[in-house]
Computed example of a mutant assay.
Amino acid sequence: MRIHFLQHEDFEHPAYLGEWMGERGHGAATTRADREESFPELVDFDMLVILGGLASVYEVQDRPGVRREMAFIRRAVEAGKYVLGFCFGAQLLSASLGGEVTAMDHPEIGWHEVRLTQGARSSERFKYFPERFIAPVWHGDMFSIPPNALRTISGEYCPNQGYMLGDRVFGFQVLLHMTPANLEEFIGVIGEPVPGPNVQAPEEVRSGLRHVDDVNRLLAAFLDGIASGGQGS
């Protein structure tokens, strides 16, 4: 499988996704969207992965470079490519598909329990996911579920943690690709979390890494299902 990444920050890189690709022998290329690099031809990749970023979508989506990126994302969706967005990437994907991104009353940072919706439990794509699991999150904005899409993951503090459009387009607010090293990169760039509503203390965020292998395995099973060519619901 040929995977193409849209990257927006140095520290918002593929993380565990890179490990998964290396283990499975998949090819990859990257466009630095923040540097307005050229986008690839649609025939050059099978899966598009939109990575995170520090910006708020509603503050940047009218910029010419971001508008070009959103148009490219729409073309990939319309061409039937697999398209995955993580965190800011899921928010940008939602906005590209007619959804809306808004600020939350309080940011959500740490390891929180999330749950699958009935729609996700009925999908072959999520068959390896438990109904409830602990996942890492680090965001202050929330996407709406795009038109014709289904909510897949929900949480206590943020009801929209994931969505799917058909069988090939998926948005994840949860950071299933987080690794211990990547968490330290987050803290190094953004700073230590300041405890508050929905925000865990730094020591609690780091101790949550005991869950990281579990969420990485969920992502691996999800991606393996796509790469195998299996058809979802």
Rank of each mutant, 00 (worst) to 15 (best):
M1C: 10
R2E: 13
R2I: 08
H4M: 08
H4C: 05
L6W: 04
L6G: 01
H8M: 11
F11H: 06
A15F: 02
L17N: 02
G18H: 00
E19V: 14
M21V: 14
G22Y: 08
G22K: 10
R24D: 06
H26G: 05
A28F: 11
A29E: 15
R32P: 05
E36W: 06
E37P: 13
E37A: 13
E37Y: 13
S38G: 09
S38K: 07
S38Q: 09
V43W: 11
D44Y: 06
D46H: 13
M47E: 00
L48T: 00
G53W: 00
A55I: 05
S56P: 07
V57A: 03
V57T: 07
Y58P: 00
Y58N: 09
R63E: 15
R63Y: 12
P64H: 09
G65A: 15
M70R: 14
A71T: 14
I73R: 03
I73T: 12
R74I: 07
G80P: 02
S94T: 01
S96N: 06
L97G: 00
G99A: 04
E100L: 02
V101F: 03
T102H: 02
A103E: 04
P107Q: 05
E108K: 08
G110W: 04
H112P: 01
R115L: 01
L116Q: 04
L116M: 15
Q118D: 15
S123W: 04
E124A: 15
E131Y: 09
A135W: 00
P136C: 14
V137T: 05
G140K: 04
D141G: 07
N148T: 07
A149W: 03
L150Y: 12
L150H: 12
R151W: 10
T152P: 01
G155R: 11
L165R: 06
G166T: 07
F170W: 10
L176M: 15
P180Y: 10
A181Y: 12
L183S: 06
E184Y: 09
E185I: 01
I190H: 09
E192A: 05
N198D: 04
Q200C: 12
P202W: 03
E203R: 13
R206M: 03
R210D: 07
R210W: 05
H211N: 15
V212M: 04
R217C: 09
L218K: 07
L218S: 08
A220V: 08
A221W: 05
A227W: 05
G229R: 12
G229M: 11
